[in-house]
């Protein structure tokens, strides 16, 4: 075995930098997670392990508000992610498989540009747009806004996956008597599936935790989880917020793990 001194994989000092980054990234999250299990109503004093704030979320005085917000969030995230993923899949197919059309680069730019537009600008613009066309604010406006801003998030993993799929697979399918549509559904789509799942999960998470745009376009009395949490925090931070945040974090972790497991399964076969 080669000595460590000559091992090209050893970079001196990287361990320290890595640890520092990990602390900065995760320390606040860990504090929130730990204190969500605190028995005390204080958010700074530790008084022992308890699930009372989790119980409070489901049965406490604010539980009705949180439940309805959670339902709104999940329904919107599910629909928005589904619609956005469908649109993104079709766009990727058109842009990457539609041959060389004149507006190809423009199309790619247009679909990914929203990622670079400051969210507050998108939020204000969306609000003005809904006002201009006289659309009453409510759940539907949130949904439409979410579909729109989720498309680029869904598009990126889908197009990345598609770029890695050689067009000879579709040619082989068509050579074997498949129509264009059959080549798409029988060959291209299954090969793209991992990218589509990643795109869907990304869109779902982005929609689930969006605050700025939602806050602008939601109607009075309509809340999603992030806006409900924000509203509660304005009246003082209580440990039940930490419990909700921890659960939301849990959902994200589960989704990301799922996405990873699916992509790993795909690599194996």
């Amino acid at each position: 075995m080669a000595s460590k001194k000559y091992d090209l994989r050893v970079y001196p000092g990287f361990r320290g930098i890595t640890l520092l980054c990990l602390v900065i990234l995760y320390a606040p999250l860990i504090v929130v997670m730990v204190y969500s299990f605190n028995a005390s109503p204080s958010i700074t004093n530790w008084e022992g392990l308890s699930l009372r704030w989790y119980a409070d979320v489901f049965t406490g005085p604010e539980s009705a508000k949180f439940k309805s917000a959670a339902r709104n969030s999940f329904v919107i995230a599910l629909i928005a992610a589904t619609v956005a993923t469908t649109i993104a899949t079709l766009s990727a197919t058109a842009i990457l498989r539609g041959g060389k059309f004149r507006l190809r680069m423009v199309s790619f730019g247009l679909i990914s540009l929203p990622l670079m537009v400051p969210e507050i600008v998108t939020a204000v613009a969306t609000l003005i747009f809904f006002n201009a066309i006289g659309f009453d604010r409510g759940l539907l406006t949130i949904l439409l806004a979410h579909i729109a801003f989720c498309i680029p998030f869904a598009y990126l993993p889908i197009s990345a996956r598609m770029q890695g799929i050689e067009s000879t697979y579709e040619q082989a399918a068509m050579d074997l008597y498949a129509t264009r549509r059959q080549a798409f559904t029988r060959v291209l789509l299954p090969l793209m599936a991992p990218g589509i799942v990643s795109g869907f999960i990304l869109a779902f998470i982005v929609s689930l935790d969006d605050f700025i745009i939602t806050n602008f376009v939601k109607g009075a009395g309509v809340e999603t989880l992030p806006t409900a949490i924000f509203g509660a925090v304005k009246q003082g931070i209580k440990p039940n917020i930490m419990a909700i945040s921890t659960m939301l974090l849990g959902v994200s972790v589960v989704m990301v793990t799922l996405s990873w497991l699916i992509s790993r399964k795909d690599r194996k076969t």
Binding site: E166, T168, Y169, A172, D175, V187, L191
Partner: peptide
């Protein structure tokens, strides 16, 4: 039918 250079097996 064609046998492709890189086979293009599904």
């Amino acid at each position: 039918n064609t046998v492709f250079q890189n086979y293009a097996l599904f």
